[in-house]
């Protein structure tokens, strides 16, 4: 099934995915309905502000999420689908939201959905930075947590050069390119 990255609500039809979620977001990620052990913390009910961390959706975002969802091999099982949220019956807790709210490190065991966590952790970093809560004050937009597993700062990608942290103390910087004939960056 496809779940909204912003509120965690599952889409009931293809049309709904195309038109967007009732919360206004058009960003969906694919999640398989699979039962098994959970790697993520149970979801606690986020307040409205916490749920408003997702970047503004765009057409390109939507297609990317779709593509990523389609190529996902195996996804993390969820146990917290039944958690509820005050004054909002439509809010369905998801693995994505759990990952966003959780401080647990990423799990790279077989069976974990890297694509889903990749997106969700990226959103989490963005949220923390936006609220100035970051203790570490990370400078990178993309961080390799384990081999093949990346955290992405979705919002941070809009500011400054692209910085990739390959490992602790090793950074790659992509300088913004501009050429007078091509105009400003």
């Amino acid at each position: 099934m496809h779940i909204c990255l912003k509120c965690g609500r599952s889409a009931k039809s293809v049309e709904e995915i195309e038109e967007g979620c009732t919360c206004g977001s058009k960003v969906f990620v694919f999640k398989r309905d699979e039962v098994g052990p959970t790697h993520l913390k149970p979801l606690t009910c986020p307040n409205a502000q916490e749920r408003n961390f997702a970047p503004e959706p765009s057409e390109s975002d939507f297609s990317n999420e779709e593509k990523i969802g389609e190529v996902a091999d195996e996804l993390p099982p969820e146990k917290n689908e039944s958690a509820s949220c005050e004054n909002d019956d439509s809010f369905a807790p998801s693995g994505v939201a759990s990952a966003i709210l959780s401080d647990e490190p990423l799990d790279d065991e077989p069976g974990h959905d890297y694509c889903e966590v990749w997106l969700s952790k990226g959103a989490k970093i963005s949220k923390i930075r936006a609220e100035g809560e970051s203790v570490e004050q990370a400078i990178e937009n993309i961080r390799q947590v384990r081999r093949g597993i990346f955290e992405v700062d979705l919002l941070g990608l809009k500011e400054g050069p692209l910085v990739v942290r390959d490992q602790e103390g090793v950074y790659y910087v992509r300088l913004p390119f501009a050429h007078p004939e091509l105009g400003k960056i």
Binding site: E140, P161, E168, G169, Y171, L175
Partner: peptide, 18 residues
């Protein structure tokens, strides 16, 4: 110390570009 310096240096590059 070297890792911390690398982090500061990268932050410096970002600042310089900005």
């Amino acid at each position: 110390e070297a890792q911390e310096r690398a982090k500061e240096a990268t932050r410096g590059i970002v600042e310089a570009v900005k």
